[in-house]
Design a protein around this nucleic acid. Structure first.
Lengths: 334, 334
DNA sequence: CTGAAAGCGCTTACAG
DNA sequence: CTGAAAGCGCTTACAG
């Protein structure tokens, strides 16, 4: 294929003005059936493609949206992004996915880039506790996913992490009162909600004591060492089985691996509850009991709202914040 | 933050022409230190941001590259993409990631979109056996990853799947001569290479018989059923342990799960070799022995070459095709 | 139904 | 050192 051809060239070749060509392309304004055919023929023959850069400049509309993702290799994120991308594509938007690597600087940098490329809208996925839109033009449609925006006027869609944790905890409590929670080092806003769900449920059920471990970031091996020490302490001398609520499936899977190592029987002596239903959950043995997030619904809400905003509509008051229900998936570890 | 401000406004506010403002911004052409300070001050005060759409239009350069990915939720792809994105970002390019969902139509559609957004270059990751660049302008820099281009002039970077399969097969052969291969339904070009590595090694070592299973796409459950039947047949009455070369870690993990189910001892009676070293490999128990692809090197080669091409340099003849070495990771299943 | 012209926000020869 | 003007490829009031 040769170099790009412009509307001007098409106009020349079909013996009409550029204005007319533009009208034909966009099927807008009036022109005779005859010119339409003629122009379309020339366009086809020359494999003309609209230059969207020029069009964006003129129209102040790019049909592009940006997505900020903290870590695209995280299955929950990549899944959600993939579905959002699909939804937006169907509506004629293409998606610029930006990996912020959980870095404030990169996040800011990418916001700048996206802005200067004049995206029509922005979807921001968690990474820090809050997202500050003060760097953004006031009129840019923005949807936050899984991260509470600092500004309460920004639309927000997220799983009901609190409710998920309540379900998880009650399920564990039905089997044993000897509970523990295992968390990651740094807490996202969703992580805090999960912790809150756990603790408030215990409080409500009048369980006063529970174990707690914070696993600091590091290699899988490091993490397992910390878990090993914890399990050895916790399992020691207790009559009741131990029920562990892990704040992610990754943690849950590691706990399971350590349990095998220590010859602790799962789920007989140790019950493990994960969170996310990530791919590894199904490849553990036994498979992990966990809380599944509904990425499809999440993505649908987020892209639907963004499109609404980009079409110039406003969100009703009760649409600003949307909690997506989660689901308890009972498998082998409980 | 308020609406966008243009170079024209900045010119007005600083009492110079737009030409001068442009020169100051790009530090290009000559201007007095005094005007520089003045203009920069106004820019800062007004939070001016270049409109890259306009700049692209004028410069025929967008500092944007497109990546076509068949499935962003596949860890190998998302990892590779993430690293490429990082490399390009450091060179001032932002990346548009397009999920083609292994659909020819979507692939074509996205190529069009990317083209019309005037990307400076394109990275194409496997999905079909070959990629045809006839729809692309002749002068657009393109790098293929993991998929042989139909046109042998396109630069290509991929893991040495053949060599990986040879290593895997020889390793298994050292333990047992009773081998089998388990493949996916649809073969990518990399898959075919893996098969070839397996078969040629067996031929070389004069092993004439081996088992073979093609697992058709479906739910995890479906796949496990097919594997179950296969294992029951293969394990029946054989004295030697069975060594299975699975064409992906996903397959390997499912085989392992079925083995547990059938109370087959791994690695005593059954040895399993995966491919990719995907995240699930480390969460199986025992952990999977597998062949690791070097995503970092892969990404480095791909982004490096693309940048070279985008800078107008040519690739030396021996740079067109680059095979990246893979590594045998011995863990618990062999 | 059709065209000439302005303008989106930039950069860059050209002239001074 | 600085400015006026052209032009990147489009769309759209305006005039006819």
């Amino acid at each position: 294929m040769n170099k790009k051809i412009s509307i001007k060239k098409i106009a020349e070749l079909s013996g009409v003005s550029v204005a007319t060509v533009s009208r034909v392309i966009n099927n807008n304004g009036r022109f005779s059936e005859e010119t339409r055919k003629k122009v379309l023929k020339v366009i086809r023959e020359n494999n003309y493609q609209t230059n969207n850069v020029a069009k964006s400049l003129r129209m102040h509309k790019s049909y592009t949206v940006g997505i900020l993702v903290p870590d695209i290799t995280n299955p929950f994120f990549s899944n959600t992004v993939q579905i959002i991308e699909k939804n937006l594509f169907e509506k004629g938007y293409s998606t610029i996915i930006c990996n912020t690597a959980r870095s404030r600087d990169k996040e800011l940098e990418y916001v700048k880039i996206l802005e200067s490329k004049i995206v029509d809208g922005l979807i921001v996925i968690s990474g820090f506790k809050t997202f500050d839109r003060k760097n953004l033009p006031d009129d840019l449609p923005v949807i936050c996913i899984d991260r509470s925006p600092a500004d309460s006027t920004i639309a927000f869609v997220g799983s009901d992490h609190y409710e998920g944790a309540v379900m998880a905890t009650e399920f564990l409590l039905a089997e044993t009162e000897n509970l523990a929670i295992v968390k990651h080092d740094e807490q996202s806003s969703s992580g805090s909600e999960r912790v809150r769900g756990f603790e408030e449920t215990l409080f409500k059920e009048k369980v006063e004591k529970f174990g707690s471990l914070i696993v600091s970031n590091g290699s899988q091996n490091d993490q397992q060492k910390q878990i090993k020490k914890f399990l050895q302490d916790e399992m020691n001398g207790s009559k009741q089985p131990l029920g562990v609520f892990a704040l992610s499936d990754t943690l849950a899977a590691n706990i399971l691996l350590v349990a095998h190592d220590l010859s602790i029987k799962v789920p007989k002596q140790l019950k493990i509850m994960g969170f996310d239903d990530s791919p590894i959950a199904s490849y553990c043995s036994p498979q992990l009991t966990t809380i599944r997030q509904n990425e499809i619904l999440l993505a649908k809400e987020a892209s639907g709202k963004l499109i609404k905003l980009m079409n110039g509509e406003n969100l009703a008051r009760d649409e600003i914040v949307k909690k997506i229900p989660v689901q308890l998936i009972v498998r082998g570890t409980t």
